[in-house]
Write a protein that binds this DNA or RNA. Structure first.
Length: 373
DNA sequence: TTCAATGAGAAGTTCCGGTC
DNA sequence: GACCGGAACTTCTCATTGAA
């Protein structure tokens, strides 16, 4: 989608000309005044929305260096690792880390609804990553961010563009909500169907057939699946990296293989491969018998299974599970697997459609942002 | 020889102290 | 008090080790 924008009357401004950096720190009472606190890990890449946070009420512990207060409507920009593209729009008042810039738009020049998208433009990313300093801690300074220059449209045009950008954002938000509901509903449906079915309980070790194929450097298969490419709770893996950049021995994943991440089992990373790839050796690769891979995958994502493996994790630095541990989990050898899978496939079809819609909507939104800023 | 288990090092995040 | 940057800690990748 190409926008016809005449930028002749747009004014070149520096970020510091149209934003005020707020420093509202309360080392003594911030903890008592605000329940919610936001860590960098709560901010998603290339998203303005805050979907997660920690809460003292829920028992999350507030770090001693979290005393910086942010207010609803402020732009939150973590200066550490700016290449990770994490900037959020505060949707509530709370506490954040000292290294997060809290920026307030100056309404004399800009319309608050318009400007947040600037922080997810390629131009802003290029600037902030270009001014990174520090070898052990890559970061940028406020004075370098403040000097970022961009073209600012007149206010009436800002209004029109804000409407367009938020309309697109709303589409993505609604599509994500639908996907979330579908995930919840399919999980409940699966557990109900298993409960209703009759059949003998058998350990997963009688179902799973480990695949041991390895790939040595240089890898002949182009795609690489690392743990960072696997979304928690997802049934397929959409993202991948380039195996040319991987210097280690890998597992070979064939299309249709059942894959399970043994590292930090509570992260719930399991999927059926939709393409051939090499992968991190933290992935266990399986074929199955007695039950289909698809059917077993629903078990691997079920709450009882995650609870089971989380409790059995071992290792000094990071909890892991092994094939042996997974094999101890008991599943029902149901008589009507096809009937259950038929129901689940309807869910999967809807989920795949929704995923495709989200990917397309995000690409369109990105294109709009980069045409404007 | 194979492969599960482990830990070193890289990358990312929070803590902490110095300087202006 | 704000700003800055290194230290310390956590998480993840990947090479090595040792048991089978």
């Amino acid at each position: 989608m190409k926008l016809k924008i005449d930028k002749n009357n747009w004014e070149k401004v520096k970020l510091i000309d149209v934003f005020t950096k707020r420093e509202e720190n309360d080392k003594v009472n911030a903890k008592k005044r605000f329940d919610k606190f936001l860590k960098v890990e709560h901010m998603d890449k290339e998203s303005l929305h805050i979907k997660r946070w920690s809460s003292q009420e829920k028992g999350d512990e507030l770090n001693p260096y979290f005393y910086k207060i942010f207010r609803k409507g402020q732009i939150l920009f973590p200066t550490r690792n700016p290449h990770l593209r994490r900037t959020a729009l505060a949707s509530f008042d709370g506490i954040c880390g000292e290294k997060t810039l809290t920026l307030e738009p100056n309404e004399e020049f800009i319309i608050p609804e318009f400007i947040p998208f600037l922080f997810h433009s390629e131009s802003f990313y290029a600037h902030t990553t270009g001014v990174i300093i520090g070898s052990t801690n890559p970061h940028c300074r406020w004075r370098d961010v403040a000097n970022y220059e961009f073209l600012l449209p007149p206010k009436d045009q800002q209004n029109q563009l804000a409407e367009l950008l938020w309309a697109m954002d709303d589409v993505i938000k609604k599509e994500r909500e639908v996907l979330e509901r579908l995930n919840e509903a399919s999980q409940i449906a699966f557990e109900n169907e298993i409960e209703k079915s009759s059949g003998e309980l058998i350990p997963l070790s009688e179902v799973l057939i480990p695949k041991k194929a390895k790939s040595q450097v240089p890898h002949k298969i182009n795609r690489y699946i690392g743990l960072e490419h696997i979304e928690s709770g997802a049934f397929s893996c959409i993202e991948f990296g380039n195996s040319n950049e991987v210097l280690a021995q890998c597992n070979i994943v064939e299309e249709g293989d059942l894959c399970y991440s043994k590292l930090r089992p509570y992260l719930d990373k399991a999927f059926i491969a939709t393409f051939q790839a090499v992968s991190t050796t933290e992935l266990l690769i399986y074929n199955t018998h007695k039950l289909s891979k698809e059917f077993v995958l629903y078990h691997l994502h079920s709450k009882p299974f995650i609870h089971f493996v989380t409790g059995k994790g071992f290792g000094t630095k990071m909890p892991r599970v092994s094939h042996k541990i997974i094999g101890e989990y008991k599943v029902k050898l149901v008589d009507d697997e096809d009937k259950i899978l038929g129901l689940m496939r309807n869910f999967e079809k809807s989920k795949t459609n929704m995923n495709t819609k989200i990917i397309n909507s995000k690409a369109l939104q990105k294109s709009l942002i980069n045409q404007i800023f």
